[in-house]
Design a protein around this nucleic acid. Structure first.
Lengths: 221, 221
DNA sequence: TGCAAAGCGGAGGCATCCTCCGTATATCTC
DNA sequence: GAGATATACGGAGGATGCCTCCGCTTTGCA
């Protein structure tokens, strides 16, 4: 409750120790893996063990369970945002949009446990989900705007709506074949967005369509 | 004490004891209240205390934490299904549809904690969410079919898609004013469903608002 | 090289989950 | 109505997990 540590970066600001940075990184990677596999009820000790650090270290970096969720969550969101930026410059507008949407589906598919963890995290901290919602909205908004500017899609659909639909598609991720259905639905959405007024030019110039796997995942050890 | 209980023979099926039924009912009511207020992390002991029974009784009726979630969940879903049946016979088709959709939003609004609990429950038991999804789909399907038969809405939108959209609207339930927005979106959805010609293809002439709902989902050919 | 500060790791207090079993009560038979 | 017995109740208690605290180690800087 008191002012706690005023983390001013003013005078004696030592550089953060390398082992601290390294351990923090390890913890985030481990947490992602553990929560993805075991859901949000996986123990903190399991995370620390997988990261190869003591439980005390975990709690110094992430004082509460929610703090850890949040950090992992933010990172995932950031990766999706980064992916949007990459696609923005690497792929044709419509294809960039489609790939990004598909990546979202795959994101949920490969991290089933994360979905529940995120629901829990969102329940605890409204600020967190507001943050992520805004960032994702912006990312998607850019993709949409670019595609709309190119005349490839209609321009009267906002990113919020699309994002909500996307979330809804992914929330029910338990039925067999949900992923195929969701991916199909992405295609339907994209097709539905294509403005029939604008003459859709079918990929006239695609000099180097990098075979990027569009995955926002990082290699795991 | 004896090695094995052999009374699995179903020769004499006693009636379930009345106190057992009463306690089970009390537990369900208490669990709903506790989880709604405190989220899925509320303790089992709190549920038992509120129900006025011992912890042992709780665990006899619901052997695991998930079992309790599931029972509460099923009951909530059943209530929504019942509501659909009532509205079916009490209200005009279009109004019945609108009211049911709004009830879904309010359901989430009054039970914030439940949303996270349900996400957790769904994560644990895929069978559970399949059950609820199917029941809700059927309920919504009846309302849709009735409204479509009355010629009040278009007939090419399936209940699954609508349900997914509804879920998506409710998942992000933390931002201030989300409920008002969701309720507005329900109206938009209903308005969008109204068949102005039963085969209305929106998008060519009418500029309309940005919130277009004319998604032609339903990919099943 | 020397020295604090920053960081590390795990023992341990506290809370919660779930099991086990002695006691109490409802149902059934006569 | 009374006895017999299956059924249910309730809480003590072991196991597990969350988080704190503190002595020891490592690192950055002079």
């Amino acid at each position: 409750m008191s002012g706690k540590k005023v983390n001013r970066v003013r005078k004696t600001t030592r550089q953060p120790r390398t082992d601290a940075l390294r351990n923090r990184e390890r913890l985030l990677v481990a947490a992602k893996a553990v929560f993805s596999a075991g859901g949000p009820e996986a123990s903190q000790e399991a995370v620390a063990r997988r990261a190869g650090v003591g439980i005390g270290t975990l709690y110094r970096h992430f004082p509460t369970r929610e703090a850890l969720f949040e950090a992992v969550y933010r990172r995932e969101v950031d990766q999706l945002v980064d992916l949007a930026g990459q696609l923005q410059s690497e792929a044709l507008p419509l294809e960039a949009l489609r790939r990004w949407l598909r990546s979202n589906v795959e994101f949920v598919a490969t991290k089933k446990g994360m979905a529940a963890a995120l629901a829990l995290a969102a329940h605890g901290s409204s600020e967190l989900s507001a943050y992520s919602f805004e960032r994702l909205t912006n990312a998607l908004g850019m993709l949409l705007a670019r595609a709309a500017a190119a005349g490839e899609i209609r321009s009267d659909i906002g990113p919020e709506d699309l994002l909500r639909a996307l979330v809804g598609m992914c929330v029910i991720h338990d039925r067999p074949g949900w992923q195929a259905g969701a991916l199909r639905l992405v295609d339907v959405l994209v097709d539905g967005l294509r403005s029939r007024a604008a003459t859709a030019r079918p990929g006239s110039a695609a000099p180097r369509q990098r075979q990027d796997t569009g995955r926002a995942d990082r290699g795991s050890p």
